[in-house]
Design a protein around this nucleic acid. Sequence first.
DNA 1: CGGTGAGTT
Length: 996
Amino acid sequence: MGKLRRRYNVKGRLQATPGPSKGPPEPPPVRLELEDKDTLKGVDASNALVLPGKKKKKPKAPPPSKKEKKPLTKKERKMLQKILEQKEKKSQRAEMLQKLSQVQISEAELRLFYTASKLGTGDRMYHTREKSDKIEAQGQEKISSLSGAHRKRYRQELEEEDSESSVESESNEAPASEPVQAGAGVLPAAPGAGPGSPGPSSQHSLAGTTSAPPGVASTLARPPAKPSVFIPVNRTPEMQEERLKLPILAEEQVIMEAVAEHPIVIVCGETGSGKTTQVPQFLYEAGYSSDNSIIGITEPRRVAAVAMSQRVAKEMNLSQRVVSYQIRYEGNVTEETRIKFMTDGVLLKEIQKDFLLLRYKVVLIDEAHERSVYTDILIGLLSRIVSLRAKRHLPLKLLIMSATLRVEDFTQNQRLFPQPPPVVKVESRQFPVTVHFNKRTPLEDYSGECFRKVCKIHRMLPAGGILVFLTGQAEVHALCRRLRRAFPHTRRRPPEKDQEDSVEEMRKFKKSRTRAKKAQAATLPQISLDNYSVLPAGEGDEDREAEMDEEEEALGSDLDLDLGDEGTDGGEQPDASLPLHVLPLYSLLAPEKQAQVFQPPPEGTRLCVVATNVAETSLTIPGIKYVVDCGKVKKRHYDRVTGVSSFRVSWVSQASADQRAGRAGRMEPGHCYRLYSSAVFSDFEQFPPPEMARRPVEDLILQMKALNIEKVINFPFPTPPSVEALIAAEELLVALGALQAPQKTESMKQLQRSRLSCPITALGRTMATFPVAPRYAKMLALSRQHGCLPYAITIVAAMTVRELFEELDRPAASDEELSRLKDRRARVAQMKRIWAGQGAARKLGDIMVLLGAVGACEYSGCSPQFCEANGLRYKAMMEIRRLRGQLTTAVNTVCPEAGLFVDPKMQPPSESQVTYLRQIVVAGLGDHLARRVQSEDLLDDKWKNAYKTPLLDDPVFIHPSSVLFKELPEFVVYQEIVETTKMYMKGSQAGGWPLA
DNA sequence: CGGTGAGTT
């Protein structure tokens, strides 16, 4: 440990041996291009990222066409495509390579960010918080009172242009990135139905078209114009028997006929219908994987992709070599693979390499109702790919699978599907869930209401697990503590449980027991340990509970499962003597603790899981019979104008509430207790808004531009992002040099039009190959100098993975726990200070902490013990390790002579490297600059220690968890601003100006 | 001096 500290204590290494290499103690000045003659040999430093459109003098990469404005004829485009196909691969790589080695951070660029931000000049006219809130409330059309009308007009113009056809302009500037046709990324405005998909396909055209018995249907349904292919599957009799119980088997023929006759089919079936596991099998049997092609299925989550591939392989009695999966960091796809499960992001990346997805005959988009951004983009892209493939007489089938009937965004969207695809509805095999509404809706204390409801269920109702939905970690833990105190375990846990538990969990367990015993000894001596009808002292609920007991009579028999919500409470039912096995569940919880909810609870106890939204879709807990739904959800909100985000708790949608309720009926009939009235429920939104409409989209826009989709506003999004979000994305990407800025010479009207159709630059293409946010991709693209790449990769990986540090700030259940927590917090704070380094390194601020934490963790072998001791989340560190690996590979691919590898014993950066890294970080976060307010500005107390940013009139502050909190440098750049009690700059900051 | 839901390349 001591050794380790020395390694990552920059002071220890650099100051103990001042001048370790030839490096002078003073960091070099800003102008990198003057520093290292070797790496800059032959480089035109003036051709930095600011002039990205300029073609290189590379003889290999002649600009394909410079007579741009003139639309190309079909013939011309075909010819162009041939040329491109021949030259593209070579030239593209060469171009990227050159670009990478060429890119420098120039002082000019830094100044650009600086002046652009107009800090401290007091002359800006930006939105206040109040204004921007209002804008959001008004909806996307009205951007602001100043510019709303004209932006609206602008949007109309863009849409009009759409009808002119967007085909011509795309293929001239940037060559298609891959050997597809030149217009590959060009999405024809009106795709038309492919061959073999004629017919009046109204939404209900399939209802009652067939009455063939299930099981034989697949032999009848086969792709048209294909020789009869039927690939038999040797299922075991047990498998077959299980399978036949699934309702979707009855729909096999309907589905397969629909697929045969239509290029695009929507399958709706709630959870339990078996669509995810069965439809791929139907397609396989019908020969959709013949001719060496693949059936592709996308899932929104990695675990689902892996689990589904394993399950389907087992059901089909096939090896994982045939039924395989591919997720971000791993996969088991082979040459033999015929059914491939993958995450939606993986398929999106594949489209970048092969726009027409020629390896696939069918693509299934699963869980489309969740409307993840990748799912939405895939559907938009696939709608066009399907018609492009049809024109090539290589038809591609698209199946969209949704758990709800909310498919109007797909069927009623003319731009997406001019011919609405048919919808096949599938019954599900869920057990009935009785929903009980509260008569009244608690205004604030839904947590307390949850507690009371769980108590009642536990005391009054028959065996069966309880699942409680709350909104956040802190709430989950608080309720767990309350419930454990109310229903302590009387018997020892089985020893193997103890081993699984972490030290902390065990300690908490002991704590809660002693605490409960104390409470009983002190105030409830007369009550036996097996009687849980009375709460321990200090709960603060005694009054209410007592009140409830009196009204017990009114309740009726114990079979009446409607517990009411008006203060009635259970008496001493026999079941009430059951101990309650309380477990927390949320996404950031350590996986081994998450896994506990899948274990059967200790004998003679009732399982009670207190969860956040993870339990709504991501994790299914077995044995749940009762669901308690507080009706709230915590969501992140982005201010579209300022980019400031905040977390807000709001009502869920009706669909979410129903999804939560459904979790009670997976094994047997269940009950759902909603802690709000049916009137309130009826006011809920029907569905949650798609993510696409809620978040910044610069990463998606860059991906699309890399597919040569220039006019992103014309893209057939199922639900488009707001125009402000699109404009903000393009502006950021232009500022990063990923897109070409509109020509200033153009007329106002042209300028406005081109603002949303900026072509991608060579740098942008390079950035798009890095699987991280554009800001971070830019950092990587800039780092090929002075040996900065390994550090930049580590920094980017650490900034990408959220929540590096464990949450240690929750209130402790006891003094003993409190002191332990305090010790851990102190230890983490100390480590942070050490990792923050000395001298120049300090100016890297929290980013140096990230670098130090990752470096130290890897140096120690990344053990769970090290993470535990230093407050690091083990899972996060593993993710960073894998991401470093992936990014290292990605950089090596673009730039093989870098010869990078992931070094677990990476040395801390030298002082001069630190300076370069600060510049690199600023280049990515240049628009996230803040300046300390001048003392003469301190008219108001609210500006004490405050910073000013270009876009916000209100003060922002360095977050107290930052190592720069007390330093208050004049300038900082920040990862993000999150509004809580104040507006805090969070994530990491690199501070100080100028940067040398 | 602090309050962070769930996903993904």
